[in-house]
Amino acid sequence: MPTRTVLVGSASGLHARPAALFVAEAAKQPVLVTIRTSDKKPVPARSMLGVLSLGAKKGTEVTLEADGDDAQAAVDILADLLERDLDAVDA
């Protein structure tokens, strides 16, 4: 099953705008991707409430996982997004 572990790159952590951008991108993917931190259960990446509740800050290690066709591509797209500083992205 495709898996990738990355460090959150956004200055404000995985909250506010970064979380909204990440969740919106996850909703576009054809497969269900989950995200988890080392100490919490995986939640659907397209769940705003779940993603926020992880409480991931800048530098927190998060793991993405998906199954099925195109799973690797979906995990890669979302992992790349997480590594960027989304607070610096123009609206």
Partner: peptide, 18 residues
């Protein structure tokens, strides 16, 4: 702008399938 972002985040929470 900040108020609009807070409202949009609330929309995403409300529409959360979970």
């Amino acid at each position: 702008k900040t108020a609009a972002e807070v409202l949009r985040a609330q929309v995403m929470m409300a529409q959360d399938e979970t």
